[in-house]
Every structure is written in C-alpha cells, then in structure tokens.
C-alpha cells in the first residue's frame, strides 16, 4: 500500500513541477540562423488581463497560420506594475529569444521612478495597435457632452465623481490633465480594475470614468452606458458617432501604441525576422476581425524604426501629461 501511495505522491509532485515550469522556459544561446528554438514572449501582467489577452490572441494567429518556424511561448511575469517583467527582459541583453509586450506602464513606471528600466534599455521590434481612452457615463446620465460636464463642474466644484484604476494609470493621468486644462475640480475615485470601474458606473456609484474602449464595449452595445468623448486624435473607426475631446474644445490627445520590444543589442536579422512575422500576423483576418474589431482597438502596424520613434514620443507625451497633472511628481 505504502509503495502505491508514494508512487501516487510522486505523480503529484511531477504534475506540480510541470505546472510550475510550464511558464518559465527560456534560453540564451546565440545561433547561426534565427530562430533555432522557441521564443519566449514576456507579458509583464497576470494571465487573463487586457495585455495578456492581446498578446495571446496575436500569438495564436502566428501559430495557427504557421508564420514562425519556431513556436512563440507566452510567459506571464506579473508584479511591480510590469516592472518585474520588463526588468527580466532588459536583463537578457543580446538574447533575441526573449521579447516583451509594451503597455502604458512601460512608459509611466520609469518616469515615476517605479521601474529600474526605461525604453532606452530595449530594442524596438514593431508596433501593431493603438489604444486610447473613452469618457463613459451611465445610459441615463444627465450629461450629453463634455461642455455640459465642464459647466456643471464649474458650477458645483468637487461634486462630480470620476472612477479610475489608480493614481498612476492612464486614466488618472488623463483625469488630472483634464482638470488642469479646463480649470475644473472633480473627485477622482480609484478602483482596482477596469471591471470594478464599470460596475461602479452601472451601479451609479460614480458619475463617469475614462476607460479603454474594449472594457466598455459590452456595456455600450447593450445600451447600459454611453460614450461621451474619445481621447484619440481622430474618431475611432468602430465608433464614428463618438466625438473626440479636441472636437469638443479640450485640446488633449492621449493614445499609446501597443508593440513588441526585445532586449538591447539583439541582431538586426532577428529584429527583421520577428517584424515580418508580426506584420504578416497583423494582416490576417483572424486578427483584424477576430481581435481588433471585437475589442475596438485600432490596428496600425509600425516597423521597428517607426515604433522606436513612437516610443520616444510616447514617453515625451506621458512626461507632459504627468507634469500637467502636477499632483503626480516626477522623481
């Protein structure tokens, strides 16, 4: 009996070890013609979140269409608002088998002194989508446009409550910059996730919030919530009826590019190979219709050079926003 038990327990341990290591495989040998082994794609956030879904959807297209000669494996390295995953990737200098996805904290965390690595520690590979923010209210809200909100905020300072996802997120930066530009005072109520913010809007606990279009889509389609403005330069393809903030007289544009970076000093042929793989993937209907359209994300492919330029520009944009926001001090 004892023997059996021990065998059984050994089986458990093996399963546990496999579970533990399934996510964490990578390597660092240089090879003659890239790629000769699987590529690790680091998502610096937990599985199931927005960044993770985007990365997995993109990689699924690459795998389904057999665009890469070697498999790409997603590895979630959450923690430290993304800084752990980014530090891990930056640390693999010269290793083209570790790449990472870029999200807003890639830019904001180093500016706020919360990450040891900044965009200068990475090699840009490509950009593939643009994400922005929507100003959303509940369907029965009294506000129809931004002007009414500003007028009400001026008439009753500190009465409008705006939900968001924490002191340093995109939407917080947007909120404080908006206050500064329009000379208004409102209440910023931080929540743990975009989901909680949407619940608070639907339950009438906060008046409005800046959210990513994908997070609000379900509620907008079900006519439980309304979008009042979008923070991008031009109106979104999928939401032509929603005017931009600039159109409504507030001159603020916030848009960030989702893309892929590698560690510093990786070979140009590796950058070119990966760039081509993701370019082909981003043209597949599985990606354009299957992901972009359904999540209201604007697809826009950028080469390594374009994405490198945009990384510098985006950092500058966040620097301006953070300074404008004032409340969040640069360190």
């Amino acid at each position: 009996m004892n023997k059996k038990c021990i065998q059984w327990l050994t089986a458990i341990i093996v399963v546990a070890m496999m579970g533990a290591f399934v996510a964490g495989c990578g390597g660092d040998k240089k090879a003659a013609s890239y790629p000769t082994k699987s590529i690790e794609m680091v998502v610096p956030f937990a599985a199931g979140g927005g960044s993770d879904i985007m990365a997995r959807s993109l990689v699924k297209v690459v795998m389904d269409k057999k665009l890469s000669s070697q498999p790409i494996l997603i590895s979630n390295k959450p923690g430290g608002s993304g800084s752990i995953g980014y530090a891990y990737t930056a640390d693999k200098k010269g290793d083209p088998y570790v790449i990472a996805t870029v999200s807003s904290s890639f830019y904001t965390a180093p500016l706020l002194g919360q990450s040891p690595v900044s965009y200068k520690d990475f090699t840009p590979i490509c950009g593939f989508a643009m994400d922005t923010l929507l100003l959303v209210v509940r369907e029965d809200s009294k506000y129809q446009n931004v002007k009414e909100i500003i007028a009400d905020a001026k008439a009753n300072p500190k009465s409008i409550s705006v939900g968001g996802t924490s002191g340093t997120s995109d939407d917080a930066v947007m909120f404080f910059a908006f206050q500064e530009r329009t000379g208004t005072e409102m209440k910023y109520v931080p929540f743990n996730s975009g989901g909680e913010v949407m619940t608070a809007i639907l339950g009438g606990h906060v008046d409005m919030a800046w959210v990513n279009p994908g997070e609000a889509l379900g509620q907008l389609e079900a006519k439980k919530a309304r979008a009042i403005a979008v923070a991008s330069k031009e109106r979104l393809k999928e939401m032509q009826q929603v005017p931009t903030l600039t159109e409504q007289g507030v001159n603020l544009v916030l848009a960030q590019f989702r893309g892929i970076v590698g560690p510093k000093d990786i070979s140009p042929e590796a950058v070119q190979y990966l760039g081509e793989v993701f370019k082909k993937a981003s043209e597949q209907p599985d990606w354009t219709d299957g992901y972009l359209k359904k999540n209201s994300v604007e697809g826009r492919f950028m080469s390594a050079k374009e994405f490198g330029d945009s990384m510098a520009e985006t950092t500058k944009m966040y620097e301006e926003f953070l300074t404008l926001a004032g409340k969040i001090n640069k360190k």
Binding site: A46, A47, G48, G49, D52, I53, R56, S57, K60, S193, G195, G290, K294, N295
Partner: peptide, 11 residues
C-alpha cells in the same frame, strides 16, 4: 477574470 479572458479570446 481568467475565464473572461478566455471568452474574449473565443471572440
């Protein structure tokens, strides 16, 4: 949250 992620990936 993970299940929601799966639903989104199924479209």
């Amino acid at each position: 949250a993970v299940m929601m992620g799966a639903l989104l990936m199924f479209g």
